[in-house]
Design a protein around this nucleic acid. Structure first.
Length: 440
RNA sequence: GCCCCGGUAGUGUAGUGGCCUAUCAUACGAGCCUGUCGAGCUCGUGACUCGGGUUCAAAUCCCGGCCGGGGCGCCA
């Protein structure tokens, strides 16, 4: 039994970017998209591209009339495979070219293309998203997602090294994490359920399980009608929760995770960074920590009054960012501005052990030490107008031995946005979900 | 949720009442070319978001719909 869809030697396929003048005289198999075809009459040049790079196939009409005819008939972005001899060449910009002995069309592309990956014109985000698979054939777009993978790889390696256990928590839930707003309702057989807005409650429950240190990378859903370049209704959250730890301890984990993400980018995606024109210098640790009260004072210096308990507006955050390095923590937030599960400071309970990690004016992480006393948790639920009955399954985990713990949630999409220096978070998500878009 | 802005060939754009039978680039089709690699040259195809209104005249002004972009709030 043979498989006639692929050439017999396809298993020997080499990434285009791995072939060089050093392969002179050898035979290689390549496969990819036809980026460009330049037919000069008696000689034609075909550029084939895969994820790793491009190669030029050179076809002489006299020497290989059938291949020349086939190559000349190809439409851009069609998928081809070729077996070819590598020849060092001064005439080719790359210093070598491929002389094919076999060429096969594996998947023809229709024309015109809804988006030309090799076109010398810009592409609007809207057009790119509507044709994402073609957009991804553009080196710049491809590079963003190669970077995203390298970032997650660095995060994963660092957390594993610090003995965190990777877990998955449910995305279909019965109650809100922090109140009723912002949830997508769904029909769950005969009952109403919701898409989870955060793994917060579940990762805390796991602190009562003995798993000690857990982390999860997964989707979170927020039914908020925001319309900005940094919000999506489905986003990817990197979460940790750590027992026997306070806010300082998990801030330390976060700093090391960030540094690991940047190092991983430099190590595993240097070409992608170059394509994007990004140079990354991992920051010196520790990152600066400034308190919320200090932020208010900085705002006051610019004649902006921030009442205690009030959230920091974009205007205030920009003013603060002007005075600090790109990455910094804002600590000791007012208890009133943070969720019920954040622990108040004992000798100043209007303050809390909550922190945010900021990249200039953008918030990328929110975390803190948690309340682990069940009585205090119940009281804080009531204070925030929530019904402890609805949280019974969560509160139960605090009654039979719950270690003190802390944690954070880091936005994977925003982290990618920042590290790849893109402008819109939609550029950093393959198939983003916003107020208007659920297709593709 | 509040506010502002936009929609012109496949793609990206110029055009703010008549000079628009609409600009340019790119893509696409045909032709020429044995060294291209942003190939080149010649010729050609291809568009004003939809509906209503104002006007002698609307891509252009007004109203509404649809679609999109951005800011703020909120947050990851």
């Amino acid at each position: 039994m043979t498989n006639d869809l692929l050439p017999d030697d396809i298993a020997q396929r080499r990434p285009c970017g791995s072939i060089g003048p050093g392969d002179d005289g050898g035979t290689v198999v390549v496969a990819g998209f036809v980026e460009d075809l330049r037919n000069l009459g008696n000689i034609a040049f075909l550029t084939v591209r895969d994820r790793s790079g491009k190669v030029q196939l050179t076809l002489l009409k006299k020497k290989m009339p059938e291949l020349f005819a086939l190559a000349s008939s190809l439409s851009r972005e069609s998928v081809v495979a070729a077996t070819a001899k590598v020849q060092r060449s001064e005439k080719a910009n790359a210093g070598f070219e491929l002389l094919p002995s076999q060429l096969r069309l594996l998947g023809a592309a229709e024309s015109p293309l809804p988006l030309g990956p090799a076109d010398a014109v810009g592409v609007e985000v809207e057009t790119a998203l509507n044709n994402r698979f073609l957009d991804l054939r553009r080196p710049q777009t491809m590079a963003v997602f190669l970077c995203r993978a390298a970032i997650l790889r660095g995060v994963r390696e660092q957390l594993q090294q610090e003995d965190f256990i990777e877990v998955q928590t449910p995305k279909i839930v019965a109650t809100a994490t922090e109140g009723g707003a912002g949830l997508f309702p769904m029909q769950y057989f005969e009952r109403k359920a919701y898409l989870n807005q955060s793994p917060q409650l579940y990762k805390q429950i796991l602190m009562a399980s003995g798993l000690d240190r857990v982390w999860e990378v997964g989707p979170a859903f927020r039914a908020e009608e925001h319309n900005t370049t940094r919000h999506l209704n489905e986003f990817t959250s990197i979460d940790i929760e750590m027992a026997y730890a306070d806010d300082e301890a998990v801030m330390g984990v976060l700093e090391r995770v960030l540094q690991a993400a940047m190092r991983s980018l430099n190590e595993h995606a240097p070409d992608a960074l170059r394509t994007l024109g990004v140079t990354l210098v991992p920051p010196q640790l520790p990152l600066p920590r400034i308190t919320y009260d200090h932020c208010r004072a900085l705002a006051a210096k610019r004649d902006i009054t921030v009442a205690f308990g009030e959230d920091l507006s974009m205007e205030v955050l920009r003013a603060i960012a002007d005075e600090l390095p790109d990455l910094y923590f804002i600590t000791r937030w007012p208890s009133a501005a943070k969720p019920f599960y954040i622990r108040p400071v004992p000798d100043s309970p209007q303050h809390s052990f909550a922190f945010d990690l900021q990249y200039r004016e953008k918030e990328i992480t929110s975390g803190g030490q948690r309340v682990h006393d069940v009585g205090m948790l119940q009281q804080r639920l009531l204070d925030q107008g929530l019904d402890p009955e609805a949280f019974a399954y969560y509160l139960k985990a605090f009654r039979y031995g719950m270690p003190p713990h802390a944690g954070w949630g880091l936005g994977a999409d925003r982290l990618t946005l920042i590290l790849t220096q893109r402008e819109n978070v939609r550029e950093c998500v393959l198939f983003p979900r916003d107020r208007e878009r659920i297709v593709p």
